[in-house]
Design a protein around this nucleic acid. Structure first.
Lengths: 284, 284
DNA sequence: GAGACTATGAAATAAATTTACGTAATTGGA
DNA sequence: TCCAATTACGTAAATTTATTTCATAGTCTC
């Protein structure tokens, strides 16, 4: 059974092929992409040979049959496409298709980077803190507030008491009421927000544990916190100017959520009840 | 005719599959590599269904037939191999390192699927609508509200007037005030929220353009909307139970944002001014 | 509980692939 | 030059594989 690319096989055996087989080989090499959607009969006609020869050709190349060869060809086409796909930061309305691929590549890199930088020991400790916290406050300012809200939503669904808010004063007031058994998850790309820093200081004085999700390892917020998770946001690179991607922070939240979900025994039941509660708004 | 990724397609259509079709979908997702070398009959037996159902399944996913689906699957397997993205659903506290990789792989697959299913012509039209809208309302309910808020934040930064809110009544009241020059971006995984449907109907009666971001291609919201972008959320498969990933929807928002950013001449200036306005809260 | 509807699998049909077989062309030895 | 022997290759039959049809069992509705 063949397992190493048709092109290679064809080239290696080319001289041993009979005349009709060479015709088939030539046609495949010239029209890989089209052959993927052909039947034996079509390929036979297109290459000026016959069904039988095509079928025999596949066997002689080491494949189980025509379908098997086609599967291999499909993979090869994909491989070549991928290789010729150079990831760049170019985004334009002119070439939407390529721009989408570039955006995707950048987002994938952000996610890979974020997960890659996670230290499992550190993560383990953070998960423990969260699991045993009295209350978890998700804090953020500006356009990161949606991520904090999402965190509170998700954690409440798991059965972990959580709060968040869009008004800084209210968030701060709440933080000042926390105690040693509680935890604050601060989300801040830059890690330099004075308001979040004030909030964190207040919570810390009361003994609450501080977990920060930030893009900036050595920022004031990162330094003051007990535990940190560093994200790999790269919009600075993408547009040359500004941060705005919420995806890495969101990924961190979803990751914590998933890991807590699998270890918390009653999590599924909590989620089921939540789903039940929102069912009346759903159709069907 | 389907042109991108089975995983994405399966995730997007999963809810509208019948029971037997879900069995097939599940089996394919779990055994991609093996399915590439299977016949219809083999897949039917392996998934506990029948030949007829498998064949119908391929059609319903948008493929020309079983062979066509298999070609696509072969390509996808290759793509994942190249990215060394062996998507596994195993998540446990026991092996954090591996679990992180599995979570990452799933998230990457969600993103690849979501971007892959985007049709550039459709996207072009949507970008045009957004660029020329009088006001853009981002609407959502429940735990998707953070995504809508993020959308409004980002679009305002670009200089595109946008609103969102966390109170449904207020969102609905606003939607009823829109006119033909305005647009509503509705975000709903299931696409079945009665409240969002009511909101959309109101806006539509006033002539506003409706753009939906949903995981469910044939949901009531998707059908009533003028334009749709389908996401490939796969948490149903990941935990076997519930949807909760906001990342695909967020990716759509960020993608629209980036594409509008590069085509809108004054976008950079708008963002600069916004950054300036929040500087006082930043340290250093 | 009767009637309409529909999801599904068994069986029939259709399509595609492989195998069997025959032919024509080439080779080599008288 | 002519007659086996060989063999590359195509036609057509056989087989495998995929799709469509149709009957049924289950669900929903009135």
């Amino acid at each position: 059974m063949n397992n190493q690319g048709i092109s290679g096989t064809i080239c290696a055996f080319y001289e041993q092929f009979f005349d009709a087989e060479k015709k088939i080989a030539d046609f495949i090499m010239e029209n890989k992409k089209a052959v993927v959607d052909m039947t034996v009969a079509e390929l036979a006609r297109a290459s000026g040979t016959s069904d039988a020869t095509v079928s025999r050709f596949c066997r002689r190349c080491g494949f189980k049959g025509f379908q098997s060869l086609k599967m291999d060809l499909a993979k090869e086409v994909m491989k070549e496409e991928r290789d010729s796909l150079q990831v760049s930061n170019e985004i334009s309305r002119g070439n939407l298709s390529q721009s989408l691929q570039n955006i995707l590549a950048n987002k994938m890199a952000e996610m890979t980077g974020t997960i890659g930088m996670m230290d499992t020991d550190n993560l383990e400790v953070i998960l423990n803190v969260l699991e045993h916290a009295g209350i978890i406050q998700f804090a953020a300012v500006g356009n990161t507030i949606p991520v904090a809200m999402d965190g509170a939503f998700k954690f409440n669904q798991l059965g972990l008491r959580s709060v968040s808010g869009s008004i800084w004063e209210a968030q701060a007031a709440h933080a000042y009421n926390l105690g040693p058994e509680d935890a604050v998850v601060v989300i801040s790309n830059s890690g330099t927000s004075k308001r979040l820093l004030a909030l964190v200081r207040g919570a810390k004085e009361n003994g609450a544990k501080i977990i920060v999700i930030t893009n900036n390892e050595s920022s004031p917020l990162a330094r003051i916190s007990d535990y940190k998770i560093i994200t790999a946001t790269r919009e600075k690179l993408l547009t040359g100017e500004f941060w705005f991607s919420r995806i890495p922070a969101m990924l961190v939240i979803e990751t914590l959520y998933l890991l807590l979900f699998v270890s918390k025994k009653d999590a599924a039941e909590h989620i089921r009840r939540h789903e039940e509660s929102i069912r009346p708004d759903k159709m069907e």
